[in-house]
Amino acid sequence: MMYPWQGQAFRQLAGERGRLPQALLLQGPQGLGKTEFARHLAQALLCESPLPDGSPCNACVACNWFVAGNHPDFRHLGVEDEAVDEDGAGDTSPRKGSPQIGVDAVRGLAGFTTTSTHRDGLRIVLVEPAEALNVHAANALLKTLEEPRPGTLFLLVSHAPARLPATIRSRCRAVPFHPPRTPEAHEWLVQSGIANPVLFLALAGGAPLEALRLARQDSGQRAEFLRRLADPSQSLVQLSEFVARLPVPEWLGWLERWAHDLVAQKLAGETRYHVDFRDLSARVAAHADLYDLLAWERTLRDAKRLVHHPLNPRLLAESLLVPLLAMR
C-alpha cells in the first residue's frame, strides 16, 4: 500500500527498476508513510508481473507471499525482531524489548545476502528505522551495504538521518521525503474520517499519518494538560501527578511543541502546533522571558533522549516543568 502523496517518488524509483543502486536511504520526518512506501516499493520490485506503471499486480505468487509476510527474498530488520529474539544474551545484546537493532540481527543476514535468491530476482532488506541500529550492528552492516552481491537492494528508513553513522549515510543514495502539500493532506485526512484535519495536521507538524494517529488517540488529555499548565492555581505536585498517568513520549511531545509555540509567539506572534490554544500561548508568552523559553526548549529536546529510559516519570516531569512554573 502506498499513500497518495507518494506517487511521484514511486514513479521515479520504479522507473529505475534494474538500475537502482544497492542501497536507498528513505529519510524524512516520522508519520509520512516511509515504511509503507518502502514495503510497497519492495513488493513492486519483487512482483513477477508488475503493472505497466511499475506497481505490484497483487495477484502473482510473489505478491501473495509478500502480503502474507512470507516472501523468501525479503528480510525485515526492525526493532520488534530483537524483542522476539531470545538468544545472544551476551553483554553486547541490548535489553529485551529495547528499541535497538542488535548485531546478531545483522549477522543473521549473512546467509541471506550471500546465497542465490529464491525466485531468481532481487533480494531486498528493509532496515527500519535505520537509526535503531546500534553501533556494532551498524558497523557489521557496512561491508555488505557497500558492496553486496549483485541483485541486492537495501532499503533504509530513517526518521532522523543525522543520527546515523556517516559511514552508513555515505553508502546510500538518499531519497528525501517531505510533508505533502496541506490541501492534499487535509483531503486525505477527511477521507480517513477525521473531522478536524487542520488542528491535527498542525499538531503533527504536517505529517499526515502522525496526524491520523493523534486524531484517533485524542481523548482530550492534551487539552486538559495544556489548560492545567497555564493555570496558576495548579501546583507542581498536582501537575506531575496528572502527567505521571500518561505515557512519557506522549506528554513530552506535547510539552516540546508547547515550548516551540511559546517561542514562536514571542518571536513572530505565531502558533505552529497547538493551534487550538493560540490565545493561551500568546498570553503565557507575553510575560515569559525569551531566553528562559529558549533554554527550556533545549532542555526538553535533550530530555527526549530519555523517553525510553526507565526513569521515574513523575520526577522527570517535575524536573521539566519547574522552569515553566517560574514563568507563568
Partner: peptide
C-alpha cells in the same frame, strides 16, 4: 544451474540454493 543445484534420488527431490561467490 547458475543459481541452484538439484539432486533427485529415490523419492526425494532436493533443491538447494548456491552460494553466490
Amino acid at each position: 544451474r547458475a543459481n541452484q543445484a538439484q539432486f533427485v534420488f529415490g523419492s526425494i527431490d532436493l533443491l538447494s540454493k548456491v552460494i553466490d561467490g
